[in-house]
Write a protein that binds this DNA or RNA. Structure first.
Lengths: 198, 198
DNA sequence: GCGAAACGGAACGGAGCCGTCTCGTCTTTC
DNA sequence: GAAAGACGAGACGGCTCCGTTCCGTTTCGC
């Protein structure tokens, strides 16, 4: 099922073998259905058609497993390119996020993990460095490029700008649970553009 | 501990007796600490210094208890007045929300409930009608008043506007977990004003 | 002041999950 | 083709929580 005998490239990306892949898929399905705090490794094993030992052979605990699998997924999502204009970057950013949240699994998992971070410091710290920080860095670069182009004021509050970028779309999808049309994303981009320039 | 024998006014608001009050307080503390899905009535009873029977005498299940207690709290929060200008209304709206999210209990409970809604349709429906709809109506009224005053375009997308109003502040507080200064709220109000008018 | 009701506390059988361990069966490796 | 190891399945003792039922005590309503 895996490659012949080729030594696996380097760290991380590819799912190693079929058992690990089945466990990973089952983990995310179970995470979406039950939430992190109620997720049981017994249910993951059952859904994966595996024994519990197969899980404990790979990770020492639910926390370690979650951090490893989530980091793996996040690390393998590519970055959108520099489009040259703020509106283009903005739209690409929003479209990518909308694409992600359109899928039912991430749409259930992400709010759950965000809530879990509030009560699980260890998971929170891991997710912050593995997920939030890279995204924040990308968003900040996007804004700084735009400032250099003169599209945005140099004294822009980056924290506030981040809240504006992430908040409305997240609210629309994950909270209000409304589907987003491309027209919606376009209008949102226009509004955000006006807000950032103000 | 309660009033003498006066018939309790009408529906809902006031917490009836000291046992109910203790259970209610314990419920919210436990909700913040464990999250809805992992909250156990046994733990609530213990924290309240009550027996489990005292809970089951009042509500038939965790779900019913949660809906009753949460609706009760929400129904007893007053509305801010019409300030006469959009910026004033906006600032009042943001300040009220910031005030709420400043407290650690709501700041943990709200994200948890929002995630829970995604996997618990019954609770979701109840919270939608008890919490979200009233708030959305208020926000919509605020925007419509502003449109009548000519501050906002008549073809404003109300869904999009709602996302803009709620999203950034929620993200700032509950997700990024950053404290909000009055200056932040002022700047946010300015940005939102620009976005809504665009 | 007395009977009724609600109280805190503890126990019940049943269910689910923990992490470990032992089976008997493939699958891989040399 | 034999030895080694990972596999699925499941049993284990121990824990938590469920919803109900019993106590003996306190409080309330009349």
């Amino acid at each position: 099922m895996t490659g012949p005998s080729a030594p696996r490239p380097l760290g991380g990306p590819v799912l190693q073998d079929s058992v690990t892949a089945a466990i990973s898929a089952a983990f995310f399905e179970e995470l979406a259905a039950a939430g992190y705090s109620k997720l049981s490794l017994e249910a993951v094993a059952k859904r994966a058609g595996a024994g519990k030992a197969a899980i404990y052979r790979r990770w020492s605990s639910k926390l370690e497993m979650a951090i490893a699998l989530i980091s793996d997924v996040v690390a393998n999502t590519p970055e959108p390119p520099d489009s040259g204009t703020l509106r283009g970057d903005l739209l690409a950013f929003l479209t990518e996020a909308a694409e992600l949240l359109r899928h039912p699994l991430p749409a259930k998992i992400i709010p759950d993990l965000l809530a879990e971070v509030g009560r699980n410091p260890e998971l929170g710290q891991a997710l912050l460095t593995a997920v939030r920080d890279p995204r924040r860095v990308r968003a900040t670069h996007m804004l700084e490029r735009s400032i250099e182009r003169g599209e945005l004021p140099a004294d822009l509050d980056l924290t506030l700008a981040n809240d504006l970028l992430a908040g409305p779309l997240y609210w629309h999808f994950a909270i209000a649970n409304t589907p987003a049309t491309p027209e919606y994303l376009g209008r949102l981009a226009d509004k955000l553009l006006a807000a950032l320039k103000a």
